[in-house]
Design a protein around this nucleic acid. Structure first.
Lengths: 357, 357
DNA sequence: CTGAAAGCGCTAACAC
DNA sequence: GTGTTAGCGCTTTCAG
């Protein structure tokens, strides 16, 4: 194809076109577009006007090729609409937006053989300056990432599962959330607290379990057997059926709200009242939590704060390859006490209280 | 497993390195990497082996620059973890994955001045071969996209709000979903059905309202005044308070499950039973819908099917610039009848009206 | 402060 | 079937 140096019919304008119109060199256009210093205000204005007149749009592919930087961050998520992961993803998008980077997304399905390693690999393949791994789960020891990753990595909601050149983390708060829940229940007077855990391949699920366990131990309470669910309301329902059969259960901490809701449903179906007979607490504070019956006591997860803090670290690591990671504070724990928790029933003198809701 | 040695450390293997190792020309490597024809099996194997040995990774930026195609699709979503939009996004990711394209994501916040146009613009800026707009909302007539869009666009869940060179749509089923719900309620014997609509800036909300309205009209029923919510359980709750004051209400169709749940909560609080006094239906079939009290009757949205169908169209449009768009079938409507719907209560006065239909 | 030259790693067109 | 020759549109030296 011949050089279309003079005309650009149907072709997007290039920086050289802008340069000609503004009467400067192409390099100067580049300087202006990148907001570099050492450009006189007059030249800058002329370039900007010319660019605007032409409808100039910087070609990112060319920039990436020449500079080796893509100005995009890749995120690996679970391919699920679960409230937690979805909220985190949205938080990440917002946070990335603020940093001026673009966002690429790749999902890992649960049970995906390639798992996180495959997703990271494909991101590296597409070209990203940094990677966010959101809520990783261990897929068959998939934690060992055999890919060499030489861009900074942010792990959200789990400690570094593998060694990469520069890894930062954020959102390691499940432990505290679980502690807050457990203590709330203990303070109400419950002798102990049962736990309906999330799938243990998830770090978040393990961390919540540990937080619960540690809190119980700290208060010298007996640790009841753990029931493991899969985050779904259906699994909560199944767990509720089992728990309802045990008269000693007076308080249950479900690792997320969906399971808590399923659990409550099962309890109600067999005639156990919540919270009069059994208190139930969830975790997440999903949008409907305040409107189920009874309104659910739960802890809110700080998704946006986590995403923002994490991205700040990641971008810092990208742009300052040699600097040390700056630690961020953990966001405050936000326990939302509603009506699914109450003191344990008085066994000797059952309180007969009528509630219409 | 691939290894990455460093993007511009001078050590990143390029196609020419692979070519040298395999003893072929660089162009041949390119042919092999792109799966082109006319490469002997022997050469292909040698190239692949050399690439693997070197840990070669194709440079997408260079490819994009040279070919003008990015092999990525951009998606514009609402920056919300609402079940509907989040599910659609996940569906899109999965579908995009299957097509071999990569995915870029940009959010539009509600109330964002730049709105969809800005998001599309930024996507165009980053370089994409096609664009998916998921559940657009009208932001102050933001429908007029002043940007020139010269890549195919897929609109999910709404008709084309603007003129672009090639626009395809999918997921226009809200109307039918609303119809299914309304008819279900009518068939149970309700004289009419009230509607708690979604925010009318959303096409999905308008379409549901239209579906409900048309169905009522088709059955010759009176159309009660519409209450508008904002998708949230809180707005459903507020609507429930108002509706509960009206004795004539026996059936309500809420435009999504969250609002339905809030609505039910409000009804229960003032002593109106669901479904004995009032039937309530939602829309979405969120994960907890089956476990709230009472279990919610709702219609499931075909997110995955919509995303897949839509992406098929989009990719077709991308790869066949001149072909006509192929229409796809609408997925079947999936009404899930649970326990929040029942025949209307028996009035003390049998003012039962005969309907001939 | 500004400009000229030299690629970044790949694909496209056309030879062979 | 395979190689050769040009660029894609930008950023990078390095001059002035």
């Amino acid at each position: 194809m011949a050089r279309l140096t003079g005309r650009n019919t149907g072709t997007a304008p290039r920086s050289i076109d802008v340069a000609r119109l503004a009467g400067v060199s192409q390099k100067t256009v580049s300087r202006v577009m990148n907001g570099e210093q050492y450009v006189s205000d007059d030249v800058r204005r002329r370039v900007l006007e010319a660019a605007d007149a032409l409808g100039y749009r910087l070609n990112h592919a060319a920039r990436a090729l020449a500079s080796g930087r893509t100005q995009t961050i890749g995120v690996v998520t679970l391919g699920t609409a679960l409230y937690g992961p979805a909220s985190l993803l949205m938080g990440v998008e917002r946070a990335v937006r603020d940093t001026g980077y673009a966002l690429r997304v790749v999902n890992t399905m649960e049970g995906d053989a390639a798992g996180i390693a495959g997703a990271v690999d494909s991101l590296l393949d597409q070209g990203v300056d940094g990677i966010v791994i959101s809520e990783p789960i261990d897929e068959e020891g998939g934690a060992n990432l055999s890919v060499r990753v030489d861009v900074p990595v942010l792990i959200l909601g789990a400690p570094p599962p593998f060694a990469a050149s520069r890894v930062v983390t954020a959102g390691l708060v499940s432990h505290q959330l679980a502690q807050a829940v457990t203590e709330h229940l203990l303070e109400l007077g419950h002798t102990t607290v049962h736990h309906l855990a999330g799938p243990q391949r998830w770090y978040a699920a393990r961390d919540r379990l540990e937080g619960w366990r540690a809190t119980l131990a700290a208060h010298g309470r007996r640790e009841p057997p753990v029931i493991e669910g899969d985050w779904s309301a259906a699994s909560g329902y199944a767990a509720g059926r089992r728990l309802a059969a045990d008269d000693s259960v007076t308080a249950v901490f479900a690792a997320n709200d969906d399971m808590a809701i399923g659990l409550i449903r099962a309890l109600l179906e067999v005639g156990r009242r919540v919270p009069e007979d059994i208190s139930v607490v969830g975790l997440d504070d999903i949008p409907v939590a305040a409107y189920v019956t009874p309104p659910l006591t739960t802890v809110r997860q700080p998704f946006d704060a986590t995403a923002q803090d994490g991205l700040k670290l990641l971008v810092h690591a990208i742009e300052n390859p040699d600097a040390d990671p700056v630690p961020v504070d953990n966001p405050p724990v936000n326990l939302v006490v509603r009506e699914s928790t109450a003191p344990p029933p008085n066994r000797t003198t059952p309180e007969r209280r009528r509630t219409t809701d």
